[in-house]
Structures are given as C-alpha cells and as structure tokens.
C-alpha cells in the first residue's frame, strides 16, 4: 500500500474533536499515531483549526520568551555562599 493511499484513508474528525486534541498535540503529548494522523489530516483541510493552531504556536513562543527569567547576580552569589557553607 502506498503512502499516498494511506493518506486518503485517514478518517476525518470534526472541529470539536480537533479542538480537544489541539493542546495535547502542541505539547507533543499524543502518543497514538492514528490519532495524531487524524488531527493532522483535519488541520490540512480546516482553515479555522489551522489558524487556531498557528495562533497557539505563536502565543506559546511569546509566553516562553516573555516569562523566561535570569536569576539576579546577588541571588547567584547568595546561593554559592549558602552551598559553600553546607
């Protein structure tokens, strides 16, 4: 069976099911290959769900960038001294 045939045989899911898989997919938490293929098949055919996924990806990147923090120098020094005295 060719890969092309496999693609056509992927069962479609509706938008509600897709929405409910969205975050697990984004976080790499869908282990089941068939479920993942169904979701990706839906994305390829549904503009609305595709847009939602695009926004989620962009938002996740922004959250990651905005919430990253650097420990202040004085905290770093304090911890080094603390550990030295253990």
């Amino acid at each position: 069976m060719s890969k092309e045939t496999d693609k056509h045989e992927v069962e479609d899911i509706d938008c509600i099911e897709a929405v409910n898989l969205l975050y697990a997919y984004m976080d790499g938490e869908i282990d089941d290959k068939e479920t993942k293929a169904k979701y990706e098949h839906h994305l390829a055919h549904c503009r609305s769900c595709y847009s939602r996924m695009e926004l989620e990806k962009a938002l996740t990147d922004r959250i990651k960038a905005a919430a990253k923090a650097s420990a202040p120098e004085k905290l770093q020094n304090k911890l080094r001294k603390l550990i030295d005295n253990f």
């Binding site: 919430a67 990253k68 923090a69 650097s70 420990a71 202040p72 004085k74 905290l75 770093q76 304090k78 911890l79 080094r80 603390l82 550990i83 030295d84």
Partner: peptide, 30 residues
C-alpha cells in the same frame, strides 16, 4: 552546586511567577 547553578534561572523564573515578587522569589529559591 553545579546542578543548582545549571538550573538557577529556571528555578528563579518559576519562583518569580509563583510569588510575583522578586524578594519573595529569592527567598523561596534559597
């Protein structure tokens, strides 16, 4: 010490988002 140093920024970032306050975050990490 090496392992704490390696995750210090993450540790502080997590503490800061939890406490929403720099001084409390430093105390929490300590």
């Amino acid at each position: 010490g090496r392992h704490v140093e390696g995750c210090m920024n993450s540790l502080y970032g997590l503490a800061f988002r939890l406490t929403r306050n720099a001084a409390d975050a430093e105390d929490l990490v300590g």
